[in-house]
Design a protein around this nucleic acid. Structure first.
Lengths: 188, 188
DNA sequence: TAGAGCATGTAATAGGTTACATGATTAG
DNA sequence: CTAATCATGTAACCTATTACATGCTCTA
């Protein structure tokens, strides 16, 4: 069973600085959103668990906003556990890719449907590609001092390479689908 | 909420021929395994649901093996529902990519760990790449008659392109990690 | 003074995997 | 005879998302 990775995402984020549940969600949304998502429904219960296991500890409350804010800091044991996880190979998920499921059964679809779907897919990834470029520029400018920066850029590069491979695949696939449509219209 | 896609996977498979729950699992394992997985715990309950909704119907039992085997056939309503789903754009999942999470926090890891992990990752995708080539040859030979073949090849191409992009990314990333390690050992 | 953002949390639900139970038959 | 394969199913569990509740404070 895929062990709960949210725990490690939280431990990892807390190595950067102490954060509250709210902070963690914000952090996830702006930094790792392109390959990782977290929801409050996961974060808060797991924060409690981690405190019980002494992997993190609440720091003194601060009043930064309209409400008290409990920031959690990672403990030495927390760092050990994180390091342990980091030393294990990454499980690779089988991943369910919806567009491929549709394409696999596309013979049952109306003629233009498959093409439209792949075109939309292409558009999504082209847009992502643009955003990655932007993020890289911004990261280098704002976070050029961070020792973590090189690692962050590696994750961005992953996104960039996947996206451009998928745009290329979409182009090829759209061409093939058009060919198929022509052939079935005018069977020589 | 991501509507239950297993329903459509089953409906789609039953357009090829009537199948039992057992058959469906086998079919998934050998045809769409590289982008879709199904488990019995999903298949059997959903078969019942689909029967109740009249999207599929049990055919007469056959004795092909040591036990009775109930094959289900898709109904006209089932085909309609499938076509409806096929006409909608594919939702794209945010996807949680574990190796990127590890890399993102890799500054906390022991020196060689990140490199080892990316190397293992590279090996996995290189192996996949080889399997895709094999599958394509086999498919063309065994299923060259199937009208669905062109669609199936498109899903294979996706796998091939993703895999080779990821091998390239891994190469680049391993090089970058080695550079980082050298720099931290001998800070000029 | 209304609404947006801050901040924490929970309950309901969905979607899925794993492990197990059951029992027949066939191949080695 | 024993193990593997055929075949169907279920219960327990895990992970995660969504939607909601609460209530404060700052801004327009």
């Amino acid at each position: 069973m895929a062990e709960n990775r949210t725990r490690y995402a939280i431990l990892g984020a807390l190595t950067l600085e102490p954060m509250s549940g709210y902070d963690l969600k914000r952090f996830a949304d702006e930094s790792v959103a392109h390959f990782w998502a977290e929801s409050y429904g996961q974060i808060y219960p797991i924060l409690k668990q981690l405190v019980a296991e002494k992997l993190i500890a609440p720091t003194t409350r601060k009043r930064t906003g309209p409400r008290d804010r409990v920031a959690y800091a990672i403990t030495d044991r927390g760092r050990e556990v994180l390091r342990g996880w980091l030393s294990e190979p990454a499980e690779h998920q089988i991943g369910r890719i919806e567009i491929l499921l549709k394409l696999f059964f596309a013979r049952n679809a109306a003629p233009g449907d498959a093409i439209r779907i792949v075109e939309a897919f292409r558009g999504d990834y082209l847009a992502k590609l643009g955003r990655y470029e932007g993020t890289e520029v911004r990261l280098r400018a704002e976070r050029g001092d961070r020792a973590d920066l090189p690692y962050w850029l590696m994750t961005l590069s992953y996104g960039r390479q996947i996206s451009s491979a998928l745009v290329a695949w979409a182009d090829e696939t759209i061409a093939a689908l058009r060919r198929l449509a022509r052939e079935s219209n005018s069977p020589s």
